[in-house]
Simulated assay, not measured.
Amino acid sequence: MTTGVDRGLPADMREIGESFAVSGQISLAHVRAIADAGFSVIICNRPDGEAPDQPGAAQIETEARRLGLAFHYIPVFHSGLTSENVEATRRAVSQADGPIFAYCRSGARSSNLHALTMS
């Protein structure tokens, strides 16, 4: 798995586990870089409409699927993580056939979900 801003990946991307990376909000242009870096799955943990300028999950999903990536929309609202979020993430991880890239506003919700699915 290749990483780096020089390859068009988000500047705040962090690898937090084997074959698992997180970042804040991604753009449509990032989806191509994520695919080119060898990721096979994108997980969106950011609810649509949190910020007026964020692309909707459906837009990211369309581009991801066009590029051959699996996509999972598992929004974590400000009320906090739920057992449903954790279980949906476990399913997404178990179905993945390669590295996973998850995003939210800052990467924190995605990181927390990853930690809970590994325990």
Rank of each mutant, 00 (worst) to 15 (best):
V31N: 07
G80I: 12
F101I: 06
D53K: 05
S110A: 15
F20K: 02
I100K: 03
F77V: 12
E61D: 03
S83V: 04
R14T: 14
R14K: 15
N112I: 06
M13H: 02
N45P: 04
D12M: 07
A29E: 14
Y73I: 06
I26P: 03
H114S: 01
E18Q: 12
S111I: 04
F77T: 15
R32A: 15
A58L: 11
I26L: 12
A115Q: 15
L67W: 08
R109V: 13
H114L: 10
V93Q: 05
L67Q: 11
T117Y: 10
H30V: 12
V41R: 01
V93N: 00
E87G: 01
T2A: 07
H72C: 09
V76Y: 02
A51C: 08
D48I: 05
R66L: 10
R7H: 00
L116Y: 12
Q25K: 13
V76W: 02
E18S: 14
I34P: 08
M1K: 07
A57I: 04
G38D: 11
T2S: 10
A102H: 05
A51I: 09
G24K: 06
D6G: 00
V76L: 04
F20E: 01
Y103L: 11
A33R: 02
A58M: 10
R65T: 13
S119N: 13
L9W: 02
C44E: 03
A51T: 13
N85Y: 01
L116S: 07
I100P: 04
A57H: 12
S106I: 09
A92Q: 04
